[in-house]
Amino acid sequence: MDKDPAINVLGGALQPCSIEPQTGFFRDGSCNTCAEDRGSHTVCAVMTAEFLALSKYLGNDLSTPRPEYAFPGLKPGDRWCLCAGRFLQAHGEGAAPMVDLAATHARALDIVPIGVLHDRALPDPDSDLP
């Protein structure tokens, strides 16, 4: 599987999302993607209890550990590469988590409008704005 270029939604180099827990379609800590990534695991999101409950209700339980897949289960505050479609669905339900734009792959824009991502963006740590 050939990875797509590692570019984020801001046009820069894709930054890591999470090493602990290890995330991403390739489980490389980044929201890299490729043609085989049918779910488009491209949105680097910070989990909330509300989003985890919605995801479980919709049939994708991300909070229960699954040792057979080396999956520790997620808790609020964990960062995870979400499927772009699930993120957009959660946004429509008012339960979208915050996102790290620098760690969100540009391919997320195939599914999620940039304005929606900006609405849920974490504050820029380098910004002088309050």
Results as ranks from 00 to 15, higher is better:
D2W: 00
K3S: 14
D4Y: 09
P5V: 05
A6L: 14
I7N: 08
G12E: 09
A13F: 02
A13P: 04
P16R: 08
C17T: 03
C17M: 03
S18V: 09
I19M: 15
I19T: 11
P21S: 01
Q22S: 09
F25A: 03
F25G: 06
F25S: 03
F26P: 10
R27V: 08
S30R: 06
C31L: 07
T33V: 00
C34M: 00
E36D: 11
S40T: 14
H41K: 02
V46S: 13
M47L: 14
M47A: 15
T48N: 10
A49W: 15
E50R: 13
L54H: 06
L54S: 01
L54F: 13
S55P: 01
K56Q: 10
Y57T: 13
L58Y: 14
L58I: 06
S63C: 05
S63I: 02
T64D: 10
T64L: 06
T64N: 15
P67Y: 14
E68Y: 15
Y69K: 12
Y69T: 13
A70N: 11
A70S: 11
P76T: 03
P76Y: 11
G77M: 11
G77V: 07
R79C: 06
L82R: 06
L82N: 01
G85V: 08
G85T: 06
L88V: 01
Q89G: 03
A90P: 04
E93T: 07
E93K: 15
E93Q: 15
G94S: 08
G94Y: 15
A96E: 09
P97Y: 04
M98G: 07
L101P: 10
A102K: 11
A102I: 02
T104N: 11
T104H: 03
T104A: 09
T104R: 06
H105T: 04
A106C: 04
L109Q: 14
L109F: 09
D110L: 04
I111G: 12
V112P: 05
V112D: 11
V112S: 08
V112Y: 14
I114F: 14
L117G: 05
D119H: 04
D119Q: 09
R120S: 15
A121M: 07
A121C: 03
L122E: 10
P123R: 15
D126P: 00
D126A: 12
D126K: 10
S127G: 13
D128T: 12
